[in-house]
């Protein structure tokens, strides 16, 4: 259950990009979470809601975009989505492979509501 600590890291990143006065305008925070990143999406969403409740980010929503686990084989060049996150190439059984996606944990975008127009 380290999703709470992950959610805290996400909030810190939001704070770096959005000045305090504008944080109540944050609506969506888009994250990329690999299927083998070790993160449980529901648990991360729950943790994010829990730590932003009663803060200026309380109206923001964490959006999790899952990424499949894909490897590329250095021997035969095949790109595969492997069962259970194995790093062995299912085509030729070689073990020299590169993980292309599926382990990442990134904050991609923050979406802010427009500032209310000043009444003249």
């Amino acid at each position: 259950m380290h999703e709470l600590s992950i959610a805290q890291n996400i909030v810190e990143i939001i704070h770096q990009y959005v000045p305090a006065a504008e944080r109540d305008r944050v609506r969506s925070v888009f994250t990329t979470v690999g299927e083998h990143s070790g993160i449980v999406a529901d648990s991360l969403t729950f943790s994010y809601q829990a730590i932003t409740a009663a803060t200026d980010l309380q109206r923001s929503m964490l959006v999790i975009e899952p990424q499949p686990f894909i490897i590329r084989c250095s021997a035969c060049g095949t790109e595969s989505r492997t069962e259970m996150g194995s790093i062995q190439c299912p085509a030729c059984r070689a073990v020299e492979t590169t993980v292309l996606s599926g382990t990442e944990l990134r904050v991609r975008e923050i979406e802010l509501e427009d500032e209310p127009q000043e009444q003249s």
Binding site: I6, L105, V107, R108, I110, E111, L112
Partner: peptide, 15 residues
């Protein structure tokens, strides 16, 4: 709506 593009690793501070 305005968008801020970030593309940062969540655990970059730890890394």
């Amino acid at each position: 709506m305005s968008i801020i593009t970030i593309e940062r690793k969540v655990l970059e501070k730890n890394d």
